[in-house]
Computed example of a mutant assay.
Amino acid sequence: MIAKHKVIIITGSSDGIGAEMARQLARTYGAKLALVLAARNEDALKKVAAECKTFGAAALVVKTDVGMEANCRQLIEAAVEQFGSIDVLINNAGKSAQALLEEVDNLGWYQELMRINFWGSVWCTHAALPYLKKSRGKIVAISSLAGLIGVPGRTAYSASKFAMGGFFESLRSEVRDAGVSVTLAYPGVVATQIRYHGYNAAGGAAGKSGLKEDDAMSVEECAALIIKGFERGDRDVVMTFKGKLGRWMKLMLPGLVEKMAMAALKKEVRPH
């Protein structure tokens, strides 16, 4: 066990938003930071850890499949064994999916997506909660605008992210008196490969994005907004004007919001 650091666990930190958050946090806190980096790709995690160490941060790599409860609990145990405490848990690991329900023959991958996106966050949070209460720490859940507004062609993904929202909004009330904050982040379209690696209707790799990505937010900007949000203790981080507008319009003009959501899809993946 090393001397006291600010200990931050980031799931899904081998690439994309998770890896960029790790790098930005390492640049900011340097030797005062201990990162616990978790994902399935151990080699990629080691590369991110090496980058973070150049800024003086400590970094522990834990190969983790958040779709398996035992892996989630082992991750938390490894973090505490190495660093003695947990200050921030960032539930970032997730998988995308794009398919019209009528095109799906086997719903097995819907269940798998829920295990990764929803249950992975629940299992990690449940295991980490006693330590977060001791440190009066922070919980961060990376949802999606698809977790605020149902998106056609993304029924499975939206369902998993809506479930996250309900869980963490409820948990926020439960842990408030213990001094633990909960921040939900809702990125829109971000310039990562998540949609290309997500499920297609047959349960295989999509290989392409079903969304228009002309105005995709950079990974760097997205990571910075999430970090700024949870460090301030924000309840929610909705990152774009369209996202903020859509959230309120959904209450007053739901039909218009549905049309806007449909317009975000590429023509080839829209219902016929």
Rank of each mutant, 00 (worst) to 15 (best):
W123I: 06
A50V: 08
K250R: 15
I10H: 04
I2W: 13
E169F: 04
N91S: 13
I116M: 15
I76L: 01
A58W: 13
S14N: 08
E77K: 15
Q82H: 14
T54Y: 01
M252D: 05
V190N: 00
K228W: 07
A223P: 07
G147T: 02
G255D: 05
Y157F: 12
A79Q: 07
A216G: 03
K259G: 01
R154T: 07
N200M: 09
A3T: 11
A70K: 14
L251E: 01
V7D: 14
L113V: 03
T155R: 03
L113Y: 01
Y199P: 09
L245I: 00
Y131N: 04
N200V: 10
V151C: 00
A127W: 01
L253P: 05
K267R: 10
G153N: 03
A26S: 10
H272D: 13
D87G: 10
V175G: 06
M68E: 15
A39M: 09
T183E: 04
G84Y: 04
K95T: 08
A156N: 06
D15Q: 15
V237D: 02
V62A: 05
A70N: 11
M21S: 05
V140Q: 04
I90M: 12
R232W: 04
A205P: 10
V190P: 02
V66E: 07
C124K: 03
V61S: 06
A146V: 09
L265P: 06
A31L: 06
D65C: 12
S209H: 03
K266M: 01
A201W: 11
G153L: 06
K134A: 08
S121N: 10
G94Q: 05
A39C: 09
Y186N: 00
R235A: 15
G207A: 11
A97N: 11
F230E: 09
L184M: 14
D177F: 11
L75C: 03
F167A: 14
Q193S: 13
P271T: 07
V140I: 12
E20V: 01
G198D: 08
A57M: 10
A141E: 05
S85D: 14
E51L: 04
H272N: 12
A141M: 12
A191I: 03
R73V: 09
G150F: 01
C52E: 08
G137D: 12
V219C: 07
L25D: 07
G120H: 10
M1K: 14
G255K: 08
G210I: 06
F83Q: 09
I149M: 00
I9H: 05
G150M: 01
K46S: 09
Y131T: 02
G166T: 00
A163T: 04
L60G: 03
A146G: 13
R232D: 13
A146W: 00
A159H: 12
A141V: 12
L253S: 04
N92R: 04
K228N: 11
I17N: 01
H197E: 12
C124T: 10
E231H: 09
V122A: 13
S170C: 07
V48G: 08
L148S: 03
S144Y: 00
T240C: 00
A99H: 15
V238T: 14
I86Q: 08
E169I: 02
G210S: 10
H5E: 07
F83W: 11
G18P: 14
D236E: 12
G207S: 14
L145P: 00
G233S: 07
